[in-house]
Design a protein around this nucleic acid. Sequence first.
RNA 1: GCGGCUGUAGUCUAGUGGUUAGGACUGGAGCUUCCCAAGCUUCAAACCCGGGUUCGAAUCCCGGCAGCCGCACCA
Length: 564
Amino acid sequence: MMDASDILALCKRRGFIWPAFEIYGGVAGMYDYGPLGIAMKNNIIDIWRKAYTLGEGFIEIDGPTIGPEIVFKASGHVDAFSDSIVSCTKCKESFRADHLAKGLHSNPDSLSNEELSKLLRENGVRCPECGGDLTDVEDFNLMFKTTIGPGAGRVGYLRPETAQGIFVDYLHLYRFVREKLPFGVIQIGRGYRNEISPRQGIIRLREFNMMEAELFVDPENKSWPRFDKIKNEKMKLVPNNGDEIEITVGEAVERRMIGNATLAYFMYFTQEFLKTVGIDPNRLRFRQHLQTEMAHYASDCWDAEVLLSYGWTEVVGIADRGCWDLSRHIEYSNADLTAFKKYEEPVEIEREVIKPKYELLGPKFKGKSAKIGKALEEIDPSKIKNGNITIDVDGEKITVGSEFFEIVRIKEKVTGRKIVPHVIEPSHGLDRIFYACLEHAYTQKSDGYVVLRLKPAVAPIKVGVFPLMVKDGLDVRAAEIDERIRMSGIASYYDDSGSIGRRYARMDEIGTPWCITVDYETLKDGTVTIRDRDTTRQVRIHQERIIPTINSLLCGTPFSALEQ
RNA sequence: GCGGCUGUAGUCUAGUGGUUAGGACUGGAGCUUCCCAAGCUUCAAACCCGGGUUCGAAUCCCGGCAGCCGCACCA
């Protein structure tokens, strides 16, 4: 049977992916996309982008891959991505320092490395494996750190996900969509994680490609307009409290297996996308994260997993991030990252407010009077004690007597309120999807003959063009046809080397769905043969029909339709 | 990061201290060939990197890098 090394060997030999920096020995977790790989990756991106932007009305942005430290403090990555580690001086095992400190301190996470080291030492904590001495506590952060600007500069990090670039642009985005929920934003790009031990080809990379979508929804109404259209479709689910079941999208929401309709809708949407690019539906499922497994920001999370030779592998994570990200960025930036939710009817309310008498405050408090007045306006009248009120101005407590203000009743029309939208995030590991497409397309006959049954839409080359013989002008004719196909926008490849069978084999191995051969009949009547990769059947068509025929096949017309 | 195993053309492999480092497949050029990895001629192409031992290292030793497996970690 096929295993991952067959696929990786094919990828390397035929130019899908290559280990990066190979002449210098390579770097673990880093790969180059070769000519075929990049073409195929771009095809996958195209399909995904169109599904989200044209299909669901999402908007797309593209932000920097490096961000200042504050962004990742706010996002929680500086803390949550960083583990305090100790290792044993004897057996070299590594342990999470905060785990070892459990029970010794009410909140070990809050301690510095020095404090943790001291705590462990004073309590005589030794290696749980062999009882050896432990090293001092060290930080291990999975983010790549850098400096922005010259000299000491500003601390920056390479982004571990593209999502934060969307959250920090929320103000622009909310205005762009004309201040309506729900709305969705996508970003496609690189992310960086300094993995401890990258393995398994391109499954775990240190620099990787992501396609992320962030949906901003009303926390009180997490529905999606087109949910009803798909609620009777099925998905394979592995909930965190039970066994795998196949269930309709609607029922999964009704039974509260999936937290809300938007999450469920995009799980289904993801399933359909993965099928479109060639993932085998029988090797696809959604697995719910365990509570302990959830990221620091997530409240519910389902992974789309595909079965690879490595086992079940996450390719898409669909998380309900709640209000975590926007709330944190509000806290750290003081920006107003909210949505205004209008009431059905404006509400009129009456309330009492303090109205400062500025004409008296001025002479008494001089320069401070403006600030005192402002503070009085903001305070609730119930705080008045014995006619006096005490306020805090620049850290100074000032007591103001009742002669300096009056209490007035005002009527206010409130048309709505500000809410922090919740975020639902389908986050795609592009490299993993790319690899899964290859593995699920890979077939090998008993004699070792390899056919990559890639979906035509993702295949890097759509048509091979060959002359049957390299003489009598067949080659010239074939080269002309090849050029015309390419000029029409379809990737084709001219090949006149070796026997015709060898040329078909070359195309089969890289997943080219169709081959066109110019033979002696072409010279007589202008027809060529077109061959189907998966069936090896051939049909004669007139050369003038080549481009419309290929286009129609690319749109999904079955090859057998040409045989009538 | 720890432990085990491994590293020879693009790929698979022969080579146990002295070889022009051998073969097969692939690839290029040409011949042949009227549709599925055919044949012939010919060409190109390798000892992972760095130290050490030795008169001499692909071969023995050490370190690094990379791969595989296991452990640990995993948003």
